[in-house]
Structures are given as C-alpha cells and as structure tokens.
C-alpha cells in the first residue's frame, strides 16, 4: 500500500514518504543521482536548471533548522522557487486543520510539498489528500519515518565503505521515539548489509523491535563488537521526566560513546549522528570531533541527497 502511493504507474518515485516498500535498485538510483550532484557544491556555479519554474513549499509543522536549511538549499540549487513556512507558529495554531492548510497552498499552484510534522502518518495523509500533480517529500513524521535522513546516511556510508554487503551497523540510543532509526533500519536491510544491531535499554526500544530485522543488545560493550558503522541517536531530555531513564549521567555511563568504547568496534569503524548532538549525553566530544566521526560529512551530503530525491520525484512520467 505504501509503495503504490509512493510510486507512479511506471514504478518511479512520485512521493517520498518512507523507505518501506522501495526496492534496492530504486534506493541505489537515489544514491547514484545524489553522487552526480555531490560534486556541484565545490563548483563556482552551484545551480542546475532541473526544477526551473517549479514551486516548492517547505511545510514545517515542527521546528528544525538543519533539515529545513538543506531542503531549501537543495531546492535552490535545482533552480526551483522555494517558500518555507513554519506552521508550528502559524495557521494551525489558529485552529486551521491540516487539510485546510494544504488546500490553501494547493490553490497557490505549488508543485511539491516538503513536510515535517510531529504526528506519525502526517506525510501519508497529505500525499493521499493532495492534488495529483503535487509530490510530497517526507522530512520527518512523528516517530514513523525520515527517509531523506536515512538516505543521506546511506550515501555517507557508501562514500566511505563502498559496499554494503559485509557491513555490520549498530544503531544506539532512543530507537523507540526515532523516525530516523526506523528509516535507517529499512534502508540498511534493503541495501543488504550483513547485520543491523540496535543497542539500547528496553525502555527505549519499541515492542517486537526484532520484527524490523535487527538484532537486539542491551549492552554497549558487547554490542559494539565487530561493528563497522556506529549510528548514535539523540537523547531528548524529556525521556528522563517520563521515567524511561533514571538520569543523563547513568545513560552516558551505559550507552554514551567514549573513546574507550569506540575501541571495541572495528578499527576502521565510522561514527555517525543525525544531529543535533548532546555532547556528554550520548556521545563524548572527543569522539564527535574525532578522526572516526563523519557527522559533518553527513550534513554536507544532505543537500545532494535531497536534490536527488526532489529531482526524481518531479520527473515527468515517460521522461528518461
């Protein structure tokens, strides 16, 4: 059902809502397309005319600086007209429904919505309801999916590790509330890594997490053995007040990534983080800024991957 919504009759990307249901070849096409854009950033002229005349609206119902900025830059580099709306502080707070907001913007001849929303399923809902010529890109919905973040992480992994097939990847931290983790697990499994491992206390793991195709560990020291790629997740402060964790310091003691812990993983392991980082909570500064960290690379790659997804979703049916 999700793939029929996301793909057009030719099996091409129409919306980009979730990794679930997308094929390995389509994910690889996204990565390849992103690679063709990646060199552009270093050039004098950073623009291509692929989306000239198109209007893209960034609909951010939840605040985000980095994701919004990279989507804006990606759209600008594709020569689209971009409008960014922070709806968290606008219409819906006046009681306007999500659907009314969408209808109003549709009436302004928009071609694409980039949506971030705090509720799982919001991007699906908008894609179902919106006019057929409009594409929807999910920039994060609740705890469900954040597919562009997952793809930029895949891009970064491929850049460094070249091949997915022998990789063992550990995702560490608040899997329960993480849309990034869900999308990454799906992407890694589709791209055929050797193993995805999640490392967290039971309170931060969703029920039946192993059905997502992961191995589970509650112990960082054990869990990091043989790992090639470490993905750290941000720990929100409210996890302490909702009794999921006793304290930041105890969390750091058990699951914080330090230089010593990092030594347990493979010597060429890379460290990733979707940001923003809580230094001293989930990751030690020495590791975040250390030689194995690729955190800033992830940010730069975000633009190329978002350009790839946007241009692919806006490709007219029948175009080669």
């Amino acid at each position: 059902m999700s793939d029929t919504l996301q793909l057009n009759a030719e099996g091409k990307l129409k919306h980009f809502l979730t990794i679930e249901g997308l094929s390995k070849s389509l994910l690889t096409e996204i990565l390849d397309t992103a690679e063709s854009f990646a060199g552009m950033s270093e050039q004098q002229v950073k623009k291509v005319p692929l989306l000239r005349g198109k209007t893209i609206v960034n609909l951010f119902f939840e605040n985000s600086t980095r994701t919004r900025t990279t989507f804006e830059l990606a759209a600008t580099r594709l020569s689209a007209d971009v409008l960014s709306m922070n709806i968290a502080t606008s219409a819906t707070s006046k009681g306007e429904s999500l659907l009314d907001t969408i209808r109003n913007l549709e009436a302004m001849f928009v071609d694409m919505f980039v949506v971030r929303h705090a509720i799982s399923g919001a991007a699906h809902f908008i894609a179902q309801q919106t006019a057929p010529h409009i594409s929807v890109i999910n920039a994060g919905d609740g705890q469900h999916a954040h597919p562009t973040q997952a793809m930029l992480d895949m891009f970064t992994i491929r850049q460094i590790k070249k091949d997915f097939s022998n990789l063992r990847v550990a995702i560490i931290g608040d899997i329960l509330h993480s849309r990034v983790a869900r999308s990454e697990i799906q992407a890694l499994n589709t791209l055929g890594v050797a193993e995805v491992r999640v490392i967290a206390p039971k309170t931060l793991l969703p029920a039946y997490v192993e059905t997502l195709g992961v191995r589970v560990s509650h112990n960082l020291t054990e869990g990091l053995k043989d790992i090639d790629v470490i993905i750290m997740l941000r720990l929100q402060k409210e996890r302490m007040s909702s009794a999921l964790l006793p304290s930041e310091s105890e969390y750091f003691k058990c699951f914080g990534l330090t230089e010593d812990k990092l030594k347990i993983a493979r010597p060429d392991a890379i460290v990733m983080h979707p940001g923003p980082i809580n230094r001293g909570v989930e990751i030690d500064s020495k590791v975040a800024d250390g030689p194995q960290s690729v955190i800033l690379k992830q940010v730069s790659n975000g633009i190329a991957v978002r350009m790839a997804v946007m241009s692919m979703a806006m490709q007219k049916p029948g175009a080669v």
Partner: peptide
C-alpha cells in the same frame, strides 16, 4: 496495538 505494526509505523501503542 503494541505490536509489530505499530512499531513499523511509529504509532503510540497500547499493550
């Protein structure tokens, strides 16, 4: 329901 489907879709679940 707190099960595989809610976990996949990131839906708040009821055990």
């Amino acid at each position: 329901h707190e099960g595989a489907v809610a976990t996949r879709y990131g839906l708040p679940s009821i055990p």
